[in-house]
Computed example of a mutant assay.
Amino acid sequence: MKKILLSAVAGLALICSAAAQTLPVTPHSFVVVAHRGNHLSVPENTVASIEAAISAGVDYAELDLRTTRDGKLVLMHNGTVDKMTNGKGRVDSLTFDEIRRLQVKSNDGKVYQVPTFEEALQACKGKLNIYLDFKDADVAETWRQIQAAGMEKQVVVYLNAKEQYKAWRKIAPGMPLMTSLPEQITTPEGLESFLKNVRISVLDNIADPAMIAVARKYNVAIWQDVQSESEGPAQWQEAIDRGIQGVQTDHPEALVRYLNSNGLRDGVVRK
C-alpha cells in the first residue's frame, strides 16, 4: 500500500492552483487500472505489459517512472534493477545504455528490455490512459515528453512527495493528480479541509462511507487497490459496493470479464 508524503495542508494551500484538472476520458465510468501493466504472462512495466493491458480492455496502465544517472526516463518499480533484470545496481546510478543492455527477467523465454517513458507513451497513445506512479523523475522533462507525445489528456500522476505536488502545479497546473490520504487526516472534517486547499483529482484506498461522501462532494474520485494474493470476485465486489470510481488490479482480464458479465462496468452509483 503506497503512502503519500504530503504534509501540512496549510503549506500546500499556498501553492495550489485553480486550474481545471479533468480526468482522462474512459468508455466506462468505473475504471480498471492494470497494476504495472497486465503482467500475468509478460514482465511488469514493459511495452509488452502495456500491449497486454490494451488487449484486456482496461482503462489505465499503472506505470512506475524513474531516472537513470544520465537523465533518461525509464519504467521501473524498484529503486534498483536487481529484482526485474539480470543486472544489479540502482537505477539512478546506472546510465541508460547500461540499463538498456540488461534483460528483463521473464518466464516465456522471450527477451524484454527496460522501456523508456517515450516508448511507453507511444504504446499507450490513443489506446490506453496512464496512471503514472511518479517515483523519481524531473517534472519538467516528464511533462515535455507527455506533450511531445500528444498525451496531455491521457495521464494521471500519482504523487509520492509534497515537492512533486508543488512542481506539477507550477509546471503543468492542469495535470490531474492522485495521492493517498495523508496519515493525519482520519475524519470527514479533516478530509473536507484538505480538499478545500489541495487540488486533487483522485484519492486511493478510502473505505469509510462518510469519507467517500466527502470526496464525492468535491468531485474527487476514489480508486482502490485490490491486488493481493487472494484477489478475486469477493474483493472486487466489496470495492464496487462502496460506490467508488475504480480499482487497480493484478488480474485485469478476469476483472473486466466479471464486470461485463454482471453489468458493473459503470460501477454502483451512490446518491
Results as ranks from 00 to 15, higher is better:
10 A>K: 11
174 G>W: 00
220 V>K: 11
252 P>L: 08
42 V>H: 08
212 I>W: 05
20 A>Y: 00
67 T>Q: 13
5 L>M: 08
100 R>N: 15
257 R>N: 15
47 V>P: 05
228 S>K: 06
8 A>H: 06
92 D>S: 14
84 M>C: 06
27 P>K: 12
234 A>Q: 14
222 I>N: 11
135 K>H: 10
267 G>I: 01
130 I>R: 09
82 D>N: 15
13 A>C: 02
38 N>M: 04
198 V>S: 03
243 G>T: 12
204 D>H: 15
239 A>W: 00
53 A>N: 10
222 I>R: 00
100 R>D: 14
95 T>C: 01
47 V>L: 08
267 G>N: 00
53 A>W: 11
260 N>Y: 09
22 T>D: 13
233 P>E: 06
220 V>A: 07
264 L>W: 10
269 V>P: 00
211 M>I: 05
220 V>H: 09
216 R>Y: 06
177 L>M: 12
235 Q>R: 11
256 V>I: 15
239 A>P: 08
142 T>D: 08
103 Q>D: 14
173 P>F: 00
186 T>Q: 14
90 R>W: 13
123 A>T: 03
100 R>V: 00
127 K>T: 03
244 I>M: 03
133 D>Y: 07
257 R>E: 15
184 Q>G: 04
234 A>K: 15
181 L>H: 03
264 L>R: 06
109 G>L: 01
168 W>A: 02
34 A>W: 09
81 V>A: 12
120 A>L: 08
242 R>G: 10
124 C>L: 04
234 A>V: 12
57 G>K: 02
174 G>K: 00
125 K>F: 10
159 L>T: 06
30 F>K: 05
40 L>G: 14
246 G>F: 02
39 H>G: 09
94 L>P: 09
101 R>M: 10
115 P>W: 04
153 K>H: 14
55 S>T: 14
173 P>T: 03
141 E>T: 15
51 E>Y: 08
184 Q>C: 00
41 S>W: 00
77 H>I: 06
253 E>I: 11
160 N>W: 14
162 K>M: 12
244 I>E: 01
245 Q>P: 09
69 R>W: 05
249 T>V: 07
245 Q>K: 14
74 V>P: 10
227 Q>M: 09
14 L>D: 12
125 K>T: 05
124 C>T: 12
129 N>E: 11
48 A>W: 11
235 Q>Y: 08
190 G>H: 02
37 G>K: 07
187 T>P: 11
222 I>Q: 07
41 S>M: 06
43 P>N: 06
218 Y>G: 05
163 E>D: 14
28 H>P: 01
244 I>Y: 05
95 T>W: 02
20 A>P: 00
100 R>Y: 10
72 K>I: 15
265 R>T: 14
17 S>L: 03
176 P>Y: 05
64 D>G: 11
144 R>C: 04
156 V>N: 08
75 L>I: 07
220 V>M: 05
255 L>H: 01
126 G>K: 12
23 L>Q: 06
213 A>V: 05
267 G>P: 07
175 M>P: 02
3 K>W: 04
132 L>Y: 03
26 T>Q: 04
172 A>I: 06
213 A>M: 06
19 A>Q: 14
241 D>P: 04
54 I>S: 04
130 I>M: 13
41 S>F: 07
72 K>G: 01
228 S>V: 04
228 S>P: 04
210 A>S: 13
194 F>V: 05
230 S>H: 10
25 V>N: 12
